[in-house]
Design a protein around this nucleic acid. Sequence first.
DNA 1: AAAATACACTAACACTCGTTAGCAATATAA
DNA 2: TTATATTGCTAACGAGTGTTAGTGTATTTT
Lengths: 196, 196
Amino acid sequence: MGRIKTDNNHTRKEVIITSAAALFKEKGFKAASMRELADVVGVEAASLYNHIHSKSELLHIICFEVANRYMHTMDEIEAEATNSIQKIEKLLRFLITGMVLHYDEVYVSDREWKHLSEPYLSNFQSQRRTFRKRFAAIIEQGIAKKEIKKIDAPTAVLILLHAVSGIESWHRSKVKINGKELEENMITILVGGLKK
Amino acid sequence: MGRIKTDNNHTRKEVIITSAAALFKEKGFKAASMRELADVVGVEAASLYNHIHSKSELLHIICFEVANRYMHTMDEIEAEATNSIQKIEKLLRFLITGMVLHYDEVYVSDREWKHLSEPYLSNFQSQRRTFRKRFAAIIEQGIAKKEIKKIDAPTAVLILLHAVSGIESWHRSKVKINGKELEENMITILVGGLKK
DNA sequence: AAAATACACTAACACTCGTTAGCAATATAA
DNA sequence: TTATATTGCTAACGAGTGTTAGTGTATTTT
């Protein structure tokens, strides 16, 4: 075969990671083989190892890319001087556009993190928990200030996060509404459901 | 080892299926091995094949048990002489309690159906599509009768379904609110988000 | 008690998997 | 051009996979 094609902005490793995200999404981490990945990239399986250490490295790079982006955004939004509803709306919009833009990575990070190996697994779970707690805290502040219905905040977080990850099926669907319209619909339903 | 233990109401095959659902949920279909399943059941791997035909049979039994239950309920609810909001609420309550009661099976059916083999795969996907279309139709009727906000019905369906499947994490969480309370919270947020 | 059935065992099969070793070709730096 | 670092290849490894064949032993039926 030839060598791995790169436009000049991406290293060969990055090309592999991108293809891996797409493949892991489609087949699942365990079911996807390095030989398939090599095929997609246009190379023999063994050649991949000139660029990466292991299959599991691919998974943890993908997962933490997403996790770090989430944490970074949470930092920003917490720091803003806005009310809870505004913070939640901004967070949702970030999650939705993030899902539309980095679909493969977010999907894999969402569904395949179980296959991370230690210490990455524990680390990832901990980041996930923290993110949800901070999200719930925002909702609880909103409840305290009577901007939001009196509901169980952790439950609300679960609903919101999973509703967003439902975009998965939107992505597969043929009669797509466009991304912006999707976003507005979700905000209407979800924020509308929280507001007092 | 001994033989597979059964209380008198369940066949040995049913015991295997139940254990398989739990194992597939925990490890994922591909990552779960027949030798592990045999361990759980208390028997050697080869012995399983006195009761089942193959690993993939286990998956499609689990998936279609859930799918059939969904279809059956949809039939019932469609036939009722109630308005859209009431139908949606009933559907949601069914989905939520179904998730709490048959957690492993629903989870596996939700996340692992991709690994079904033909013709089961096509059949399952088709049932899934049909269920969603019928759900969307109920929402659209509600919009036409101005009971529901003017939103994109298929998007709303995705949000509702994925919000419900988020109970997964509730199930894992240690500080659980009880099932009934969970249900009320979800109804409040989700139906509240739809209502005009 | 005898015969038939259900069920579990051991051993092994044909594969696929991730990964490594060693070597050849190509691109880059001197 | 020569030397060096990159990147690819083939071949093979050891481990794990689902599954089958054949055999022995309980349990159930007659």
